[in-house]
Amino acid sequence: MIPASFEYVVAHSLDETVGLLAKHGSDAKILSGGMSLIPAMKLRLAQPAFIIDVNGVSGLAYIREEHGELRIGAMTRESALERSSLVKHGYPILFETARVIADPLVRNRATIGGNLAHADPANDHPATMLALGATIVAHGPNGDRLIPIDEFFPSFFASALEPDEILTEIRIPAPGVRNGGAYIKFERKVGDYAIAAVAVNLTLDAHDTCIAARIGLTNVTDVPARATRAEAFLVGRRITDQAIADASRLAAHESDPKSDLRGSAEYKRDLVRVLAGRAIGRAVSRARGGSH
């Protein structure tokens, strides 16, 4: 499979990138990891006239805590997230997300920014970022703009980025006391998109009452989405097996999967229930200080 011809431009700075985006508009595509874009181009599903390679823009690959947030540069490779001890120990939900994306070789190229900007409901980071309540930093002609993750996926395969903006950073609130998260993905085999996956991030008080909960769903909605009724159900409730089971049922109800080769809609909805139950259970265990 051979991509159609295009013009290749290397950007050396964010401003140059934004200028190129402004000039070429929707004819241009940003090339970061390329792990979604290049296969689409090879299949000629995507035929952009201009490719703007941002791999040469320095200062976009980092993982650091500052201002009470975890800040991740958009060009950070998935493999860097997997290898980061800060991520592994401080944000296990993010570690669990990164390490189930595609396969290890793809993760050496794929970037977290690309995963989010592609706005594919089958991608793994959107659900996790929804659960974490992340903020997206977009850079455009007027500088930086902060976009709450809840507003980042407005419609099918579309992000809230303007045509002349580039995603530069992801900000995740640092976990508070008795906070725990988990991402559980069920796939047909390594390298597959999720049949379904559930991201859960919650906080308990000293008496095991849930005081905050966010749940993100992967590949079971048209756009990356939260299971808000399940979240609302959990908040204010003492965590019991029954509460987890009830919340999981609500999450399943909120999913809207389509039948395909991965399974029937009915199957996927039930899978959301099962995975939500397991993810909530793991998140609770972490919130309580368990290691697992």
Partner: peptide
């Protein structure tokens, strides 16, 4: 699979210009 600056990557999913 080849090594790109020491890391294994899939060379069918990169452009030569990269």
């Amino acid at each position: 699979t080849i090594h790109l600056d020491g890391e294994p990557v899939k060379s069918c999913t990169m452009f030569a210009v990269q």
